[in-house]
Simulated assay, not measured.
Amino acid sequence: MFKVGDIVLLSSGGPKMTVSDITDEEFILCQWFDTNMECHTKCFAAKCLIKYQAVEVPKVALW
């Protein structure tokens, strides 16, 4: 489901996090930076995470 390097979010919201390790299929180790640029690391249950999907905004000609 997840692989190292994936960008994920908690299903309840919060900052974008990077998957840094997969302990097993049930627990995922994630890292993220807070607003002070401090790095945090925490293990989350995989069922609480969703993959982040960036939305590409179409370019519009201004004239």
Rank of each mutant, 00 (worst) to 15 (best):
M1R: 12
M1K: 15
M1I: 11
F2M: 06
K3S: 13
V4R: 11
G5V: 09
G5W: 12
D6V: 07
D6N: 13
D6A: 09
I7K: 09
I7D: 01
I7P: 02
V8G: 01
V8R: 07
V8Y: 06
L9G: 04
L10R: 12
L10N: 11
L10P: 06
L10M: 13
S11L: 13
S11H: 10
S12N: 08
S12C: 07
G13H: 00
G13V: 00
G13A: 02
G14S: 04
P15S: 05
K16G: 02
K16P: 06
M17C: 09
T18M: 06
T18Y: 01
T18C: 02
V19R: 07
S20H: 03
S20Q: 03
D21R: 05
D21A: 12
D21E: 07
I22F: 09
T23D: 04
D24A: 07
D24P: 01
E25Q: 06
E25V: 06
E26T: 02
E26I: 03
E26W: 08
C30Y: 03
C30D: 04
Q31D: 10
W32C: 00
F33L: 12
D34W: 01
N36E: 15
M37E: 12
M37I: 05
E38D: 14
H40P: 05
H40Q: 07
T41H: 12
T41N: 10
K42S: 14
C43L: 08
C43S: 10
C43M: 11
F44L: 02
F44N: 00
A45K: 05
A45P: 05
A46F: 03
A46E: 02
K47D: 07
K47P: 03
C48H: 10
L49F: 00
L49G: 03
I50C: 11
Q53R: 09
Q53H: 11
A54V: 02
V55T: 14
V55W: 08
P58Q: 09
P58H: 09
P58T: 02
K59M: 13
K59Y: 15
K59V: 14
K59A: 15
V60C: 11
V60I: 15
A61G: 11
W63F: 15
